[in-house]
């Protein structure tokens, strides 16, 4: 068993890798309009709002990231067994995963937009050419980091699960965090930038997403630029904290205390979230009056 200092260093490294993975994952899903905000992009042509936004429907984010991570982990694991350099094995594994990511993303865009022919939504070839490289690149970064943190857990901490299984589980986790944390920033804030935030979305506005940019037409790459300011980093910090705190408590405390500390951390987070929400409502609410001011213009 390693000493606690080395262990803490490795846990910190895992947390750092998880932070980068989370940020890259969220930005990637924003470029592709995957997961929750996808329903609005899918609905837009039906309500007469045509767009130049990428429509990447590869399941939800959790299964999609389990898919990329397990492909990358399998390839990397086979290469590691063939005595490849570990970092090179990760890079090749993540590269293979990003190729399959690109293939599935392209079929989703072409398939979904071709199925919207009756609404007049065109398949833009330049949207495919421009968006696939950033989608694959962000996916590569996220998958590479997932492999890194799974490897630390498997090799240094001697986790009983096989490497591929750990990567699969962390893939699902990063997808779930990206879907629950980062999507709000893209879905509610960016897609409905012309509507007041925090008021919920009127059903009549469904599908009426913003399609014009600061100059010209909005593309999904603009969305990554916007979400990189808040949604992406927030997702990264969330995932990084989960990985760090969870492994920290099991490293520093023994079995029973680790469970107690886990409960304490969750309780503290619940209280902190509640205080934050109350503070936010007091500072920026109450919402109905703000809404009247914003919408009524009087």
């Amino acid at each position: 068993m390693m000493d606690v200092n080395t262990g803490l260093g490795l846990v910190a490294l895992m947390g750092a890798a998880a932070t980068i993975a989370g940020a890259a994952e969220d930005l990637e899903s924003d470029i592709g309009s995957q997961s929750n905000p996808n329903s609005q992009v899918q609905l837009a042509p039906q309500v007469g709002v045509l767009h130049r936004i990428f429509n990447k429907a590869i399941s939800g984010e959790p299964p999609a990231y389990a898919f990329y991570s397990s492909i990358a982990a399998t390839v990397a694991w086979i290469l590691m067994n063939a005595n490849f350099n570990i970092i090179a094995a990760f890079a090749i594994g993540a590269f293979v995963a990003s190729i399959f990511h690109g293939i599935y993303a392209s079929t989703a865009y072409m398939g979904r937009i071709a199925s919207q022919r009756r609404y007049g939504q065109p398949i833009y070839l330049d949207v495919i050419y421009n968006h696939l490289p950033p989608i694959m690149a962000h996916g590569f970064v996220a998958t590479f980091c997932i492999l890194g943190l799974s490897y630390i857990l498997w090799h240094f901490f001697e986790h009983p699960f096989p490497f591929v299984m750990l990567a699969f589980i962390w893939g699902i986790t990063v997808g779930a965090i990206g879907s629950s944390t980062g999507d709000v920033h893209y879905g509610s804030e960016r897609e409905y930038q012309n509507k007041p935030f925090g008021s919920g979305l009127n059903a009549a506005l469904s599908g009426k997403i913003v399609t014009k940019a600061e100059i010209g037409t909005r593309s999904s790459i603009d969305n990554a630029w916007f979400c990189a300011k808040f949604g992406g980093p927030a997702t990264g910090i969330t995932f990084g904290l989960i990985v760090f705190l969870d492994n920290w408590r099991t490293l520093v405390f023994d079995q029973f205390m680790a469970i107690v500390v886990g409960f304490v951390i969750v309780a503290l987070l619940i209280v902190a979230n509640w205080l934050l929400e109350v503070w936010a409502r007091k500072s920026y609410g109450p919402y109905p009056e703000k809404l009247a001011m914003l919408e009524g213009g009087a």
Partner: peptide
């Protein structure tokens, strides 16, 4: 699941 999910829409065939 991907084939139908990726072709979802009114003009799916």
């Amino acid at each position: 699941l991907h084939p139908y999910n990726a072709c979802l829409g009114a003009d799916e065939r």
